[in-house]
Amino acid sequence: MSVAEQLDMSSLLVDRVGKTFSARRSSVVAVESVSFTVPPREVCILLGPSGCGKSTVLRMIAGLEIPTSGRITLSGRPVLGPARERGMVFQGYTSFPWLTVRQNVAYGLKLNGDFGALREGTVDHFLESVGLTRFANAWPHELSGGMRQRVALARALAATPELLLMDEPFGALDAETRWQMQELLLKVIRKERMTVVMVTHDVEEALLLGDQIVFLSSHPGRVRTIINPPFKTDSAIRTREDLRAHPRYAEMERDILQMMREEGKH
């Protein structure tokens, strides 16, 4: 399939993208010739050992880092910098402490002067989908870590991006909150039919949420393999228990952990 053909049908095209960080004397190749495509309404997981450059790839898609080689295209338009069409949820808590939960969620729309969406109740809709309606008027510092990440998610979604980017969004949460958030995210993604690129090193999270797992090898980051788990589209799977009970889960998890172990030895 030619690049042009892929470009027509795919939402996101990452084409031979590389990133070299250069300091004064030395330079480090973080990512080398990474290519993959994400069709509309699919969830792509960037998985790999630490130091494989998966966050760098995500930041380049967001437009927060400039690739040193290769090109990134979203629905035919070149990615030249950060924009509203590519919303991002970060690992750290990024809800603005001077705004209430509702004001945080409305922030993106106000920033863009999108008063139509504000009037139509977009903010309430997304507060509802992440289960924060009761906390709409709370200050972020009054919320738990999981709730703050839900604020960040609702804020990103309310700006109605074409592509949602997530950089280990649940990495700072405790185990129980993390899988609650994964189930919530699964529900929201299915309902909103979002196109998502998400970075994680949590294999279970990757299998639960991904249509496509791009597994990166480390030093430098290259695509080692691409896996297509069947679980996200399986509407019978709603919880972590459903996932673990699936006959194919154990085998896929074992294969990925095996790859993680091999990469870790390098």
Binding site: T94, F96, A152, R155
Partner: peptide, 21 residues
């Protein structure tokens, strides 16, 4: 925090608006 600024960038904020908001 740099995350605050980058969040605003990915929400489509111009530099002037990020400075003020």
């Amino acid at each position: 925090p740099v995350d605050f600024i980058e969040t605003a960038k990915t929400l489509g904020g111009s530099r002037r608006k990020i400075l003020w908001t």
